[in-house]
């Protein structure tokens, strides 16, 4: 479009016609202008006047936009499949990439089809496995139901023992306080220093008694065991 406008002389029709038809005028012109007259742009047989980029023109003419990739997008598999779908073999895309377009999973499923007998056998095995699992769980539940009565009794005994221990501890403390008060003979405040010291002594004595009682109980247990062994 702008090729013809580069030369100034060719844009001036009067000057050009004057230079063309008069040899005397050519002598008068400067050398640069005379040189410009001789040089004219040469045109090919046909000239493109669409004003489009080459890739857009190719899209318009239903051809591959770019002969070689111009962007990373053109190397993606999605673009290549699209190019093959739209432009066919002209796109130089290997049509193998269009196969298995739904992914490997479908292909594996298609290739691993089983016979009817295999399917029946697999189904039967699954059902048997399920049934075995259910039976095992039910047996386990039945065993636990048999133990339920014993577990209830144990729980109640444990609760009773705990309550008895707590009550015994409370009674022991009250008894010690009474002993200390009887020792002094008069009402003494529980926060008095003398009361506290005496309480500690009484506690120590009581601990000794408890230890002796435990030891005696233990000896009695051992004697009972020995007696049993001797009798057998």
């Amino acid at each position: 479009m702008n090729v013809g406008k580069i030369s100034v002389v060719t844009r001036l029709p009067a000057l050009r016609s004057c230079a063309q038809y008069s040899s005397a005028a050519k002598a008068e012109l400067p050398a640069s202008l005379v040189g410009d007259v001789d040089v004219e742009p040469t045109y090919p047989q046909t000239v493109d006047r669409s004003g489009l980029q080459p890739q857009h023109k190719n899209v318009l003419l239903n051809k591959l936009p770019y002969q070689e990739p111009h962007s990373w997008i053109h190397l993606t598999e999605k673009y290549q499949r699209q190019a093959f779908g739209r432009y066919g073999a002209q796109s130089n895309v290997n049509p193998k990439i269009c196969f298995d377009s739904h992914g490997e999973k479908d292909s594996r499923q298609v290739m691993q089809l089983e016979t009817l007998l295999k399917m029946l056998e697999k189904n039967r095995a699954q059902k048997a496995e399920e049934l075995a699992r259910i039976n095992a769980r039910e047996e386990d539940i039945a065993k636990k139901m048999e133990k339920l009565t014993q577990w209830k009794a144990d729980l109640h005994a444990k609760i009773a023992k705990r309550e008895a221990d707590a009550a015994a501890a409370i009674q022991r403390k009250e008894r010690l306080v009474e002993e200390v008060r009887r020792h002094f003979g008069f009402k003494v405040d529980t926060r008095d220093e003398r009361f506290k010291e005496m309480l500690e002594q009484k506690e120590k004595e009581d601990k000794k008694k408890q230890k002796e009682a435990k030891r005696k109980a233990k000896e009695e247990k051992m004697m009972a065991k020995l007696v049993e062994k001797a009798s057998v």
Binding site: M1, N2, V3, G4, K5, T10, R11, P41, Y43, P44, Q45, T46, V47, D48, R49, S50, L52, K57
Partner: peptide
């Protein structure tokens, strides 16, 4: 969109003639 050479050359020298 491919125009002959003669009309392209002639219209290039004239700004008020355009090809399309």
């Amino acid at each position: 969109h491919m125009f002959p050479a003669n009309i392209c050359q002639a219209s290039d020298d004239l700004g008020y003639v355009n090809l399309m």
